[in-house]
Design a protein around this nucleic acid. Structure first.
Length: 861
RNA sequence: GCCGAAGUGGCGGAAUUGGCAGACGCGCGGGAUUCAAAAUCCCGUUCUGGCAACAGAGUGUGGGUUCGAUUCCCACCUUCGGCACCA
């Protein structure tokens, strides 16, 4: 029978056909004006690498696509866009090696990845595609940067305001005024020690340095001060924590963000440096300010440590100690972060030959420097309480410094190693003895404030964002520098500052980007002044900080987006992506969003209302996929062999979306068999015992009503699939549809309406197949906007229930009874059971527990 | 070290206001169909004992609460992910 082949499930043909249909009809175009409620489903857009997609990408994209398709059918106006985060180092490194313009590489990679994405049949609105490297896009990235540059943070109003509104002290010279203003901008320049990678010729962000070498390439990284652009994200620390509250994100991700901001409440305390009376030093009255979260342990502070970089060290160092101190500081300066971390187990430091006075008891305490104190946190100096801080304890033990206990555990908690870090009761603390830790903190804070030697203070781990890179392939800054030191933002209407062509992509070597080599671009006249352009470019994060806003109005050439459209579409209702972006991307995007919010450009405080992280997909060996292990699965191969629908279905069937799970090609085979079975259930494929192979509707499909149990199965299935999509439990939704198919395939009479409902609920998962089946069922148009099938609650429950009968908690029998039978009837029926009687024989029945519609437990002994 | 998530058959996993452990899929075993195969269909498949009916054990380990615990509580072990001297 040659027709057999012809009418089998031919995924290749079907998928090509429907992808063409959707594209040609713009089936998934979102409407900007619409009476329907809106729903915005966003995927984290990919970096278009040369390798293309790996199987991890389609996992999140399939999940979001199922939701998008289901929401459309449920009557929502859905925005579901896709784009490319295409600036970045790999294209540039390739350019350095081969001379190929990164634009060429990037375009090629985008074309490839777009083709891959399209081959999976996602319901994106392709008219809204964005590419962060296009001038039409980065023009607005620069525009937002200018917003940052032209704003300052008003701490009283707790929001950013235009720089023109900044109050400037009178009587400043021009230069002083520029400096004052620049000091307040949300985007500012600073001389900062940065991670300089000589091999890459660029500065790397902390997160791009792993174990002292560059994340890409593994080249050594050293610390070196350099002029850099910084963004004042620290001003938003409090709001970045507070506004998490209303978001539907997992506890884990919120915690990660909160910890990254790292808020801690404590006090700043001034320690006077002990000077010889009448000396030069004494007149200056030098003071060391420390930050501590435990002001209640002040009486136990037996020494102090300054960071090696602390500015006061030079002034107060003793003559005899100067040489040793300078040696130590030089050593610390050359140490990378890795070296410092490595030494964490073995503390180092030197005494600087000076003393300070503990303000609470007048004790003279020695001052040391050590690299375990960070210059960049708090005040760069600490008071040390070795009895109640593990790091101080280690240091004091090593250098034989005194340890005084000032807190006792309230109960008999474990004070192991003589270092108790918990809350307790104060001892050896003068008038404060007997106070609990919180009481003590409160009192001493007031005392410090009343005496002008300290005050309550809040510190954050979060640092300002190092926002410049010495690279070619990134957004140029819309900034020029005048000869008098003035920093000038390019006018908005002159944007974009286009990325110029260069002859070679090699870094300039001085630490500047390749842009510094193009003199005719570099030195220009701007507004009548001779200026030099900014040669830094923005980091890869920049484009991804606001792309979700550009999708709302991707073609707008007058503004980044239309404010009315923004009001309609924002916030993003669902954001799906990898957990690797849980901290930085989300934090940075939230920060930019808040800046735009303060400027009145966006209407919501937060951009992403609900966030779901998909888990990692491992190779079939249970290891991370990597070329070197040879366990990488190529999605193209899977699509070729089994089709996009099978690929989609398998990725969802593997397990819970957020779990880490291994790939198994036989599992793809399994879901593929399911789709074939669905095909045979509805199409006369000639493979089925009841059919002849016409390729049309299966003759078993007719208008005869389903039997009660099958009708109930249909309604149960609709209910479960509907609820499971809501809960992102796609694996169990698929399993329920398998149960339905297994059952209905056995029937000689398959009700047509039931088949149609089934096709509609399977459609978000396997859209190509379902469109084809929908057409075969006699419909002309796409099913994308067919109403989502409703279920009848009363038909989702059974009329007869199999009750479990237990004796002493062990299952001994099962009895079938009408649903909602009353307790008395159930008890009686259970005790009449022969098997129950065998197990209760000779025993006294103490108790009978009945759980309606579930079980009976007879307790006997 | 700290924080977060998780530990269930040969494998992926299912089951939560505490109520049949192992749905669904893979794999494996047996059968039907076939000249044969592919495809398809049917039966079986946690472990131990038994031909079977059936009995016992069983959700990382050890305790506890309960008529009843994969689910709740306490202690511990292991794996994965993140952070890492932030005073």
């Amino acid at each position: 029978m040659s027709t057999e082949e012809t009418y089998r499930y031919n995924f290749n043909e079907i998928e090509k056909k429907w992808q063409g249909f959707w594209e040609g009809n713009k089936t998934f175009a979102a409407l900007d004006v619409c009476e329907k409620p809106k729903y915005y489903v966003l995927d984290m857009f990919p970096y278009p690498s040369g390798e293309g997609l790996h199987v991890g990408h389609p996992e999140g994209y399939t999940a979001s696509d199922i939701v998008a398709r289901q929401k459309r059918m449920a009557g929502f106006n859905v925005l579901h866009p896709m784009g490319y985060d295409a600036f970045g180092l790999p294209a540039e490194q390739y350019a350095v090696k081969t001379g190929t313009h990164p634009r060429i590489t990037t375009e090629k990679n985008i074309n490839n990845i777009r083709k891959q994405i399209k081959s999976l049949g996602f319901s994106y609105d392709w008219d809204r595609e964005v590419d962060t490297t296009k001038p039409e896009y980065y023009r607005w990235t620069q525009w937002i940067f200018l917003k940052l540059f032209n704003s300052y943070y008003d701490s009283k109003q707790n929001k950013a305001r235009p720089i023109e509104e900044l109050e400037i002290p009178e009587g400043l010279s021009d230069v002083q005024r520029y400096a004052y203003i620049d000091d307040h901008r949300l985007a500012y320049e600073a001389e900062t020690p940065v991670n300089w990678c000589p091999a890459l010729g660029t500065v790397l962000a902390n997160e791009e340095v792993i174990g002292g070498v560059s994340e890409r390439g593994g080249h050594p990284v050293i610390r070196r001060p350099m002029r850099q652009w910084m963004l004042r994200i620290t001003k938003y620390a409090e709001r970045l924590i507070d506004d998490l509250e209303g978001l539907d994100w997992s506890y884990g991700i919120k915690k990660l963000q909160i910890d990254w901001v790292g808020k801690s409440i404590g006090a700043e305390v001034d320690f006077k440096v002990d000077c010889e009376p009448g000396s030069m030093m004494a007149q200056q009255e030098p003071v060391i300010r420390v930050f501590t979260t435990r002001p209640d342990t002040l009486f136990g502070a037996t020494y102090m440590v300054l960071s090696p970089e602390h500015p006061l060290v030079d002034e107060i160092v003793g003559d005899q100690e100067r040489l040793a101190v300078e040696g130590y500081r030089a050593e610390a300066a050359t140490k990378s972060d890795l070296d410092r971390t490595d030494l964490s187990k073995d503390k180092s430091g030197v005494f600087i030959g000076a003393y300070a006075i503990n303000p609470v008891n007048g004790e003279k305490v020695p001052i040391w420097i050590s690299d375990y104190v960070l210059a960049s946190y708090g005040t760069g100096a600490i008071m040390c309480v070795p009895a109640h801080d593990t790091r101080d304890h280690e240091f004091a033990t090593k250098f034989d410094l005194p340890i005084i206990e000032v807190v006792q555990p309230a109960h008999d908690e474990d004070a192991s190693d003589g270092c108790f870090t918990g809350d307790g009761i104060a001892v050896n603390s003068g008038a404060y003895n007997g106070l609990t830790t919180p009481e003590f903190k409160e009192k001493i804070s007031h005392w410090l404030e009343d005496n002008g030697i300290g005050k309550k203070t809040i510190n954050y781990k979060l640092r300002d964002w190092l926002f410049s890179r010495q690279r070619y392939w990134g957004e140029p800054f819309p900034i020029v520098h005048a000869e008098n030191g003035e920093v000038i933002g390019i006018k908005e209407n002159e944007l974009p500052v286009a990325l110029p062509e260069v002859e070679n992509y090699q870094p300039s070597g001085t630490g500047e980007s390749p842009l510094a080599n193009i003199t005719e671009w570099l030195n220009i006249e701007y507004e009548g002044k001779k200026v030099r352009r900014e040669t830094n470019t923005m980091p890869q994060w920049a484009g991804s900080c606001w792309y979700y806003l550009r999708y709302i109005d991707a073609m707008n050439d007058k503004a980044p987006f239309d404010k009315e459209k923004e009001k309609y579409w924002m916030p993003v209702d669902l954001y799906i992506g990898g957990a690797e972006h849980a901290v930085l991307h989300l934090l940075y995007a939230r920060f930019w969003h808040k800046v735009l919010y303060d400027a009145g450009w966006v209407s919501t405080k937060e951009p992403f209302q609900k966030l779901i992280n998909q888990g990692m997909i491992l190779g079939s060996d249970g290891q991370k996929m990597s070329k070197s292990r040879g366990n990488v699965v190529n999605p193209d191969a899977v699509i070729n062999n089994y089709g996009a629908d099978s690929m989609r279905l398998y990725e969802m069937f593997m397990g819970p979306l957020s779990a880490t799970k291994p790939w198994n090609m036989q599992g793809v085979e399994g879901v593929h068999r399911f789709l074939q079975k669905v095909w045979r259930m509805i199409i006369d494929s000639g493979e089925d015992q009841f059919t002849r192979g016409t390729g049309e509707l299966n003759p078993a499909i007719n208008d005869k009503p389903l039997e009660d149990k099958d009708l109930r199965l249909l309604h149960k299935t609709i209910k479960k699939v509907t609820e499971d999509i809501e809960n992102f439990a796609f694996n169990t939704a698929i399993s329920q549809m398998m149960i339905f198919t297994n059952e209905l395939s056995k029937l000689k009479n398959r009700n047509k309406k039931a088949m149609e409902a089934f096709v509609l609920i399977l459609a978000p998962f396997a859209p190509h197949l379902c469109e084809e089946l929908w057409q075969k069922l006699g419909h002309q148009d796409t099913l994308a906007y067919e109403p989502w099938p409703a279920y009848d609650e009363s038909l989702t429950e059974d009329t007869k229930i199999e009750l479990i009968v237990q004796v002493n908690g062990k299952v001994r029998d099962k009895i079938t009874m009408p649903a909602d039978s009353d307790e008395g009837t159930i008890k009686q029926a259970a005790q009449e059971s022969v098997k129950v009687q065998q197990h209760t024989d000779g025993k006294t029945i103490r108790k009978v527990i009945v759980i309606k519609n579930r079980l009976v437990n007879i307790v006997a002994n």
